[in-house]
């Protein structure tokens, strides 16, 4: 079908989202809550575009294309709403480990400081209650990705939920149950999809806190998980010849980026337990 993007006619396929059509033509939109392997929840509103005939802006990550659709991705309205989304997030959460969000804030000229010192922020203590990953909800943008990855989009464990509502809504294990007492099976699939570092492997968190997280000294080695016959593809993140983190590529046909606790966290037998020695 034919659609019009910023005045230019282009081809799109039925069933595609506007975002998919944009990407297929080499364009893009900023996204925070969208993930290729998760059902779009369309809650961050970073990806909004203007569609002629529609009163409000529409989320490009989930709205399907329609024949003849006239889409504006760079109008003043679009830029203003996107800037405000990034600004509102920047004014309320700790973005220090959220590089994409930081980049968007810079690109759109967001000024989170203009709300002043008194503006309420998410003030949550670091939840460091197990050996494998930490939760710092003062960084959480409530994108629901962890809930989806833990639930019906990947893991089917249902250990996480959104709780409360409004500005005090939070991601929760249910009554703030510590992870070891919760339903969590420590697959770390929530950690893998978290875009802000609110969920982070404990080792990474400790290295960062000690100022020893050094991306410039890191490389990635690909391999296959040695534990079982599923044969998940692993990316070993190595710093100073020590494995410091394991991920799986989200385009892997075996894993779609998801792993189990063994593949994700069971690597200390290679180098021995504990942190890598200081370089």
């Amino acid at each position: 079908m034919e659609i019009f993007v910023d005045g230019v006619a282009m081809e799109a396929e039925a069933g595609q989202s506007i975002l998919q059509a944009l990407r297929a033509s080499g364009r893009d939109a900023p996204v925070l809550c969208y993930h290729d392997n998760l059902t779009p929840v369309s809650v961050c509103r970073a990806c909004v575009v203007e569609v002629e005939g529609s009163r409000a802006l529409v989320p490009s990550c989930s709205r399907k294309v329609a024949p003849g659709m006239k889409i504006h991705t760079d109008s003043e309205r679009v830029r203003r709403s996107r800037r405000m989304v990034f600004e509102l997030l920047g004014s309320s959460v700790d973005t220090s480990t959220a590089p994409e969000l930081q980049a968007y804030m810079a690109e759109y000229g967001a000024d989170p400081d203009r709300y002043g010192e008194a503006a309420a922020r998410l003030a949550e203590p670091l939840r460091d209650d197990n050996d494998l990953y930490v939760r710092d909800y003062s960084k959480c943008i409530l994108c629901y990705k962890c809930v989806e990855a833990c639930g019906p989009d990947a893991q089917f464990t249902f250990a996480l939920t959104a709780a409360g509502r409004g500005f005090s809504a939070r991601i929760d294990t249910g009554a703030d149950t510590p992870l070891l007492d919760s339903r969590c099976v420590f697959c770390g699939n929530c950690v893998a999809v978290c875009p802000t570092g609110a969920l982070m492997p404990s080792l990474e968190q400790r290295l960062r806190a000690a100022g020893r997280w050094a991306p410039e000294r890191q490389h990635v080695a690909e391999t296959i998980c040695p534990y079982c016959g599923v044969g998940c593809k692993l990316e070993l993140h190595v710093q100073d010849n020590r494995i410091i983190k394991v991920t799986s590529p989200s385009d892997s046909s075996v894993t779609a980026g998801h792993l189990c606790v063994k593949g994700r966290f069971g690597f200390s037998y290679v180098d021995g337990p504990g942190e890598p020695p200081p370089a």
Partner: peptide, 17 residues
């Protein structure tokens, strides 16, 4: 602010601001 469901950023944070 009190009645926002908290789902989307414009309303969750916007009503607070």
């Amino acid at each position: 602010r009190d009645e926002s469901c908290g789902q989307c950023v414009p309303c969750r944070v916007g009503t607070q601001r």
